[in-house]
Design a protein around this nucleic acid. Structure first.
Length: 164
DNA sequence: CTGGGTGAGAGAA
DNA sequence: TTCTCTCACCCAG
């Protein structure tokens, strides 16, 4: 698979693409930790920097951050359990600027008593931004957590609410 | 504020 | 395989 890295308003953004589709979108402050995480998630893959597909995905993600809603166009190579994919699929149906609670999301996938499990699935989401796990917040106004830092979550929501 | 009920995943043995 | 621990939750006291 090949990948590309670019600087964005949220810090460094890494996109990795396999022969099946987009398989990782990571955020971070420095290049080395990003690469380490990519390698940790795909230990057996050969990682090729600066590939065409990776850079193409990067461009799309940056356009998305700028306000364009062009997801679903490129194939996704999601690796996860059935339950996780169910959660991620539901996440992608949340509109830009909209937020729901973990309990609500759990109810939507038919598991109303499993908000904690849903949170766990969100934490494992390999495709930041494409799968908008940042649009899930706690029920009583609590922001909840975010794998790449609550600060990034807050800024993502701010920027989505304002510029569409 | 605290405590307990949750479902699913990761890791040990 | 099972057992145990860990949660980005949520509601009742």
């Amino acid at each position: 698979m090949d990948y590309g890295i670019a600087e964005t308003s949220l810090g460094l953004l890494l996109a990795a693409v396999s022969d099946k589709g987009l398989c990782a979108v990571l955020l971070g402050d420095a290049e080395a930790p990003l690469l380490a995480e990519l390698k940790r998630r795909f230990p057996r893959e050969a990682l090729v920097p600066g590939g065409t597909a990776g850079n193409q995905a990067l461009e799309m993600l940056i356009a998305m951050l700028a306000g364009r809603e062009c997801q679903e166009v490129l194939p996704l190579d999601e690796r996860g359990t059935l339950f996780q994919r169910r959660v991620w699929e539901e996440l992608r149906r949340i509109a830009r600027g909209e937020t729901i609670s973990y309990g609500e999301l759990a109810a939507r996938i038919g598991r109303p008593r499993a908000p904690r499990a849903v949170a766990g699935a969100c934490a494992q989401n390999p495709l930041a931004i494409v799968t908008p796990c940042h649009r899930v917040v706690g029920k009583n106004g609590r922001l909840g957590g975010y794998y790449w830092g609550v600060e990034r979550k807050r800024r993502l929501l701010e920027q989505e609410g304002g510029s569409c």
